[in-house]
């Protein structure tokens, strides 16, 4: 069984993690959509830190006898894998949207300058052709 001091430290750390995530959402630096995975991580950490022989129990379920904390590493690795994969999809979507925005902007700019040219030509005509050409 895990020593009491470690249990308390781990519980405080996981509550701290969740508090940081909640504060980031409150101050609008983190969207709820991207915070849920981190809150889930906080909850899992809290469960394993307060359920004192949880790691040993799960290790015995999956048949790890030599070093039970390996279960934690496995869970952590899976979690990081999930988060990174999630971010990869988010970044891909953002870069696609960024391309679309740039293209839209270029098309709009050309339409605006066409409109300006038309307006400028009809307004400037009486004053003489071309400001610099002559």
């Amino acid at each position: 069984m895990t020593p009491v001091a470690i249990t308390i430290a781990a519980a405080v750390a996981s509550i701290g993690l969740m508090a940081v995530v909640l504060e980031l959402i409150r101050s609008r630096r983190l969207r709820e959509r991207y915070a849920l995975l981190w809150l889930l991580a906080g909850v899992v950490l809290l469960v394993f830190s307060s359920w004192r022989d949880g790691v040993n129990t799960i290790a015995s379920w999956v048949g790890i006898r030599t070093y039970p904390p390996a279960v934690l590493f496995a869970i952590a690795a899976l979690f990081f894998f999930a988060v990174l994969l999630h971010y990869a999809t988010v970044i891909s979507r953002l870069s696609d949207e960024n391309i679309t925005l740039a293209q839209k902007l270029a098309l709009l700019e050309s339409r605006v300058s066409e409109v300006e040219d038309d307006a400028g030509r009809s307004a400037a005509r009486p004053a003489g052709d071309g400001d610099f050409a002559a």
């Binding site: 909640l22 959402i25 409150r26 609008r28 709820e32 959509r33 915070a35 849920l36 809150l39």
Partner: peptide, 13 residues
Amino acid sequence: VKVLLSIGIAIFR
């Protein structure tokens, strides 16, 4: 779940 989180936090914004 997400909306419950949002409204819980909206109170403190």
